[in-house]
Simulated assay, not measured.
Amino acid sequence: MGKYIIHSTLRPIGSQVVNKLGMFSFLSDEPVAAKGTDSAPNPVQYLLAAVGSCMGATARDIENHEPSLEIKSFNTDVYGETTTYDDGSSKVTHITIKIKAQTNLDPVDHQTFLHEVIRMCTVHSSLEGSVPMDIEFVE
């Protein structure tokens, strides 16, 4: 079981938030049109990046445990749609994930590998059921 603690502090400029975890820190912000300073990705962009990053890390973890697997390339494009409601709240309402990967596996084992990446991806599993997602495998 993993535990993660991130400390986030709103800065006195725009919508900038400094996030600190261990020795790492990163900024999030909003576009100028949303009264931010557009100095960093917004939280939704980080959420979408977390999906792609987790899939890549999961693919590598599988490769590290499967000596016969060689990943030649692994890329994701993650698209998110948000909806703003009458009360001003908003939500990510749809995510599309496009995965393009090259491995040394035959076509059947390659597909099995891709499905295993999806199944084992922590971020995808956490969002599954809460946000509709379409996943496409790109040649």
Rank of each mutant, 00 (worst) to 15 (best):
M1W: 03
G2W: 09
K3V: 01
K3M: 04
I5L: 09
I6D: 06
I6E: 11
I6W: 05
H7K: 04
L10Y: 07
R11G: 04
P12G: 00
P12Y: 01
P12D: 13
I13M: 03
I13R: 03
G14N: 06
V18S: 13
N19F: 02
L21G: 14
L21Y: 04
L21S: 12
M23C: 00
M23Y: 00
S25W: 06
L27Q: 14
E30K: 06
P31V: 02
A33S: 15
A34F: 13
K35L: 01
K35P: 00
T37D: 14
D38I: 04
D38H: 05
D38R: 06
A40Y: 12
A40W: 09
P41H: 02
N42D: 07
Q45K: 05
Q45F: 02
Q45L: 00
Y46E: 04
Y46P: 10
L47H: 01
L47C: 08
L47F: 02
A49N: 08
G52E: 03
S53H: 01
M55S: 05
M55W: 03
G56P: 10
T58E: 11
R60G: 02
I62M: 13
E63A: 10
N64D: 14
E66H: 09
E66P: 00
P67R: 13
I71N: 15
K72S: 09
K72V: 08
F74H: 11
F74K: 11
F74I: 05
F74T: 07
N75Q: 12
T76D: 09
D77C: 00
D77S: 05
V78K: 03
Y79P: 01
G80T: 04
G80C: 01
G80V: 01
T84K: 14
T84L: 10
D86C: 01
D87P: 08
D87Q: 07
G88P: 07
G88H: 05
S89R: 12
S89E: 12
V92F: 11
T93S: 15
H94D: 14
T96W: 03
T96F: 01
K98L: 03
I99K: 10
I99L: 11
I99S: 12
K100I: 00
K100D: 10
K100A: 06
Q102C: 00
Q102T: 02
N104E: 07
P107W: 06
P107H: 05
V108Q: 15
V108Y: 14
V108M: 14
D109W: 03
D109G: 00
H110I: 02
F113M: 11
H115W: 03
H115M: 06
E116P: 08
E116I: 03
V117H: 07
V117M: 06
I118P: 12
M120H: 07
T122W: 13
T122Y: 13
T122Q: 12
V123C: 03
H124G: 01
L127M: 09
L127H: 13
E128A: 10
S130C: 05
S130I: 01
M133G: 06
M133N: 09
M133I: 09
I135V: 15
E136G: 04
E136S: 08
F137M: 03
V138Y: 09
E139M: 07
E139A: 15
